[in-house]
Each structure stands twice: as C-alpha cells, then as structure tokens.
Computed example of a mutant assay.
Amino acid sequence: MSRLPLSLIDFCMIYDGETAGESMQRSVELAQKAERLGYSRIWYSEHHNMPTIASSSPAVLIAHIGARTEKIRLGAGGVMLPNHSPYVIAEQFGTLGELYPDRIDLGLGRAPGTDQNTLGRALRRDPRAAENFPNDVVELHGYFTGRPTVPGVTAVPGVGVKMPLYILGSSMFGASLAAKLGLPYSFASHFAPAHLVQATTYYRENFEPSEVLSEPYVIAAVNVTAADTREEAQEQFEGVCRSRVKRKISPGGRTLTDEQLDQVVNSYQGQQIIEMLKFTAVGTGTDVVEYLEQFATMAQADELMISLQGRTNAEAQRSMEILADAWELDPNAPAGAPGSF
C-alpha cells in the first residue's frame, strides 16, 4: 500500500549531562540513519536562548550534516525570517543550494523563536518586524529567481538556485499567506494543535496556483513515541510529558521533588503544557501507523513531519526505527521527491 512520505524535525535536544557539540554529533548520526531508513527529509528549527536546544543556526547545522549525508533533503523548519535580512538568508541558503543541489529546503516562520528579552536586547530585533513578513518572503523569493525587489542587488550565491520555500505556521495567518503566494504550507501541529483543521482547510480552499506550485501541498507535524510494547510506549510518553512540564515551569533547572512535579503536572498550567502534545501517536508500530493514517486524513496532509518524542536519544531513535519498519519506508526511493517543487 502506498503511504504518505515521512520526514523528521530534529530539535537537536541537549540531554542532561550532554554538551551542545555532543547533541549536534547525534544529529549527524540521526540524519545518516534516517537516510538509510528511507525518510524524505529532516528540518532544523531556529531557537535562541534555550538551554536544551542546540539548533540556533540552522544554516550552519545543515552545512555540517549535508557533508556527512548523501541524498536526504535537509532544511530549515524554519528560519524565523523577521530575525534576519532576507538578503542574508538568500546568500546563506544560496550557498547551501550550490553545495548540495536539489537537497535543500527553506521553511520560513514569522515567530521570534525566543523570549522577548532575547528578541529585543540580544537579537536587537524590532518587535514590529513580523508585520513585514509577507513582503520579506516576496523579497527573498526574488533573490533566488533573479527578480530582486531591491534594484541592482543580486544574491551570490543565491540567484538561479532551485530553493523550495515553505510557509510555516500555527495559525490562520500562515495558511492565508501560503495560499495567496501559491507556496507549500507546513503546520506546526506537533506543539500548536488548536487550529490545524481550520488552517489546512482554508489553505486548500483558497490556494492560488503559482509558478512554483500548481496545487496545494500540506505538511502536518505530529509527535511519535513508538516502542516494542504499548506499555513501554505509554511509560515513555508519560516521562516526556513530565520532562516538558518541568522545563517549562522551571527553565533554570530548579530541582523539584517527584511529589512537587506531580502537583505541577496535574495543575491547570501543567495540563495546558501537555495539551500541546495533543497530536501524538503512542504505541507499537501498528498502533502508530493507525494513528498517523487517521491524523493525515484529518489534517488533509500530503506529507507528515515527525517529531520523535523519547526520554532519551536511544528511545527516540528506536521510535524512528519502529516507525520506518511499520510504515514500510523504501530506503531506495528518491529522497524528497514528493513535494520538492
């Protein structure tokens, strides 16, 4: 049976007792294994001032991992465009596109990817910059196509590079913009489930064909915790939920007793944090496949972007193996062919 392509989003998690360098080395190994298993692509997200996430510079990370893989597509999921000049991003990803032809994706978001203090004082970004996101996307596209909106300015590298642009979002704004510009749309339902169906429905119904895309294309993100038994998978997922609540409530690493953490997890705030993981497939390979097929139908997805959820790297990698086997991924299929545009 033909199933949708599966891709991965890698947050480059820094686990307890680990350095950022060790986390990034694991990301290399994850990409190599994903390539062998038949996943279509891996995306890396831009986050700042987060002690447990090492992917603050997706372009640099992609360059490193691209040199250590052969065919899997690599991309930003995404670059938070208001943090940057579109021209600089065109040069960065133009460079990547020249180094790794037809392997690079550029997902674009308008959120800051950080807290307000870091945004204003460290990144020195104007909080109103997000308002110009639609114009920034158009400007960026112009550098790749050789039709710059800034007269006399060419992105080198960049101009002429085949660079698929994806609009990322978790609200109606991204759905509306992607539909209007005729670009593929990726919904962040792995942490923002509320508007998934509304947004993907609007995008499909209002999509305007463009020179790069004749029909709408939806990537929907979803969490996966797969294990050899249902009991083991459920235990892992409960641990993931507890860890997430602890990180959100105590980002500085303040020690909480198990009893204190229980109270926080069961509080209204704790349950709100756990609700962010609403779309999570938990169980054996068979269980996970059944969930993902139903999720894909609901999300009207053309591709699923998997966020592996485990208490440890070993658990996350085992989830990836179980899912690949159960989904019957073909390691010999051309990587990234679906939705490459």
Results as ranks from 00 to 15, higher is better:
residue 183 L to G: 01
residue 138 V to K: 14
residue 95 T to I: 13
residue 172 M to N: 11
residue 147 R to N: 13
residue 136 D to N: 12
residue 122 A to D: 09
residue 145 T to G: 02
residue 139 E to N: 12
residue 114 T to D: 01
residue 112 P to A: 13
residue 62 I to T: 00
residue 108 L to R: 10
residue 88 V to R: 15
residue 137 V to F: 11
residue 147 R to H: 14
residue 152 G to M: 11
residue 160 G to F: 05
residue 120 G to N: 14
residue 111 A to R: 07
residue 89 I to M: 06
residue 151 P to I: 04
residue 183 L to K: 00
residue 57 S to Q: 07
residue 104 I to L: 11
residue 70 E to W: 03
residue 178 A to E: 06
residue 154 T to F: 11
residue 119 L to D: 05
residue 123 L to I: 10
residue 69 T to V: 13
residue 85 S to E: 09
residue 115 D to M: 10
residue 63 A to W: 08
residue 142 G to E: 04
residue 140 L to Q: 09
residue 118 T to F: 13
residue 158 G to C: 00
residue 72 I to E: 09
residue 125 R to Q: 14
residue 185 Y to F: 15
residue 140 L to R: 08
residue 130 A to L: 12
residue 184 P to G: 09
residue 107 G to Q: 08
residue 113 G to H: 14
residue 179 A to F: 10
residue 151 P to R: 12
residue 101 P to L: 01
residue 77 G to T: 01
residue 127 P to V: 10
residue 85 S to H: 05
residue 143 Y to G: 10
residue 182 G to T: 04
residue 58 P to E: 10
residue 170 S to H: 06
residue 155 A to D: 11
residue 72 I to K: 08
residue 144 F to Q: 07
residue 155 A to W: 01
residue 97 G to Y: 00
residue 159 V to H: 12
residue 139 E to T: 07
residue 73 R to C: 13
residue 117 N to Q: 14
residue 74 L to H: 05
residue 59 A to H: 12
residue 177 L to E: 06
residue 168 L to Y: 04
residue 152 G to I: 09
